[in-house]
Design a protein around this nucleic acid. Structure first.
Lengths: 201, 201, 201, 201
DNA sequence: CATGAATGAGTATTCATTCAT
DNA sequence: CATGAATGAATACTCATTCAT
């Protein structure tokens, strides 16, 4: 039977749609209920596909999780690189990156909570560690270069400390939620740390 | 043959011993393998008691977890309060608290990872939240008072930011472990942030 | 190789078959060994399905029990209503209903014992009570109407008393079994109570 | 060491008190929660003794149940025999026995429910059957003698039918409780069946 | 490609009973 | 005589994964 290229494309598109629907459903459920308390059936139901199909696209529940996380990490990474490319001024780069990180969390608290929570589960981290490390090295390189341009004495440590501040602020927000004023903390961080140390020329 | 029953004290001691053995075994296993991947049987075996006995003292696996966490949180709280009581100089108080927090994590990474990881699991947090909040308010009150004495402009925000830095640093260490030099980051934090802003008189 | 999924009807039939096999096995075992002494594994084995499948169709052991009972009660109810519809003469209706009740018990002593035994277990009765009450009201309405047609002075009380006699006779049979001549008692009931008070015209 | 008879008596009395306390607690709990859902711990706690002591006096939970039932059955038997001894007139005997049976149930619905419920549990009945049978034969002998004196055509069957009526009425009351007017049914039974067939001379 | 019925290993939990004191 | 800490066999239930269609 003759299969036109058109049909093949359509098939491919449907595949993509299903894959996306599954990932979206899983992310939503993992984030809200936690990985352990989410069942494969729930994911399939919410994605509007059968359990069997899910196993066509993913090697299982765990693999699904990893793929989601990997995608999110890469997304964040791309955003950062784009910021650096598009903005010439180092101070503005720094400000934009901080703003971006906070916006990233604000926009989707649940996703972020999921990713953060995995950082503490030894089993999970084992597979993700290479990815996290690559990401971290990348961030490190980019950010410390910015600090170097800004004339920091120890750009690497400065990067680590800024990263720690951001992580810590987000952590506080994730845990305390409405009791934690994320925006205000971000402003305080910019004013008290960044602008005090690297005044606008 | 007449056998007198155990005295009240003997019983109390037996119970305490068993309870402690169970909590110790559970903490060790939860921390190393994660809560989900630890079975009640493993805990009982490692504690050297029967599965059944565990249910005499705890309402179940979950209750056991909560009791452990609660104990650890209170332990940390007491340590902080003791520091404040025993050291008169505010700057030294701050330094000691920072050192203490880092030592707390360094000394028992697994315990700390366990406690932190719970902050992200919605189910768990519900029961723990009041305790976490109380603890946080307490820390806030004590630390912002120190910053006030040091003449900080906005002691509360300063407390939040310091907390975020500490959390972020620990987070980095938990995730990256041997690749993250915790001690060095602590020193950098003291030098770059604390001493620069609040120089020793 | 392309494999089409089962049709909706095929699935429906599979489900029905499994459900029935499970209910049948459970009824048999509950009746013979009692509810408490029957394990879910036994039921699954006897039904020729896995333990897990049982939980696809029933919420658990208890739910399984309820569904069986409900089915049996409705079965008995339908039989009675059919009797009334198909037989015009009230005296014959009464006789047939008595015969039917006795036959119901004789044909399947174990089932009947199961159902009756539940009437005394407070936990169980709570869920079943609405059904039992509806069934009882229905029986009451139909039977008292028959007595009314037969000219009884107090048809309602007469219904209660007849019901009590039947229950009592069956109770005796259930307890004493081979030592209790159920058929003879039924005949005596008909002769001594029914026919003496409502002679055939 | 010298043990005076006085002390032995006191010991014996304490033993009896403990035994009774245990049986009372068990009866209460069995009746209210059912045999299966009552734990040995609950019984011991409610009786104010230790679990261990319970095993000094009874061979276990099951033995405790049997001893309770046996005692209750014998109690009922004695009441019936006393009635017969003290009242000369057969019709009055019959009336008193019916009244007594109803009062017995009314006074302690829970106890009666327990005993009745056991009639349907195969395992239990096996041990109790000899006792039930002896009791039933005894009742049969006494009651049919009364019917014989009253001039019944078939005193034995008449006894069975009366027994069935009483059992059935009680059954209805046990199941429906407040919705079942036990007193009124008893009156109706007396008027409609007893007095109509055996009018007062 | 897609379905969902079926599986069964894995686990938390209960509770009658024992026994050292 | 009396205690209650300790035991462990027994069991209901979950859910990721498979596979016949």
């Amino acid at each position: 039977m003759f299969m036109s290229p058109r049909t093949r494309d359509q098939n491919e598109e449907m595949r993509q749609r299903s894959r996306e629907a599954i990932k979206e459903a899983a992310l939503e459920l993992f984030a809200r209920q936690g990985y352990t308390h989410t069942t494969v059936s729930q994911i399939a139901t919410r994605a509007g596909v059968s359990k069997g199909l899910l196993y066509n696209y993913f090697d299982g529940k765990e693999d699904l999780l990893y793929q989601i996380i990997e995608e999110q990490i890469e997304l964040a990474e791309n955003m950062m690189e784009q910021t650096v490319r598009e903005i010439p001024d180092p101070l503005r780069q720094l400000e934009t990156m901080i703003e971006g990180a906070i916006q990233f969390v604000l926009r989707d608290l649940d996703q972020w909570r999921l990713i953060t929570s995995l950082a503490f589960q030894p089993e999970v981290t084992d597979r993700l560690r290479p990815l996290l490390r690559r990401n971290q090295e990348n961030t490190l390189a980019i950010t410390s270069e910015i600090f170097r341009k800004l004339g920091a004495e120890d750009p690497l440590k400065e990067t680590y400390l800024l990263g720690a501040m951001l992580d810590g602020i987000v952590l506080g927000y994730v845990v305390l939620q409405e009791d934690y004023d994320l925006e205000e903390m971000k402003d305080y961080l910019l004013r008290r740390y960044i602008h005090q140390n690297y005044p606008r020329t």
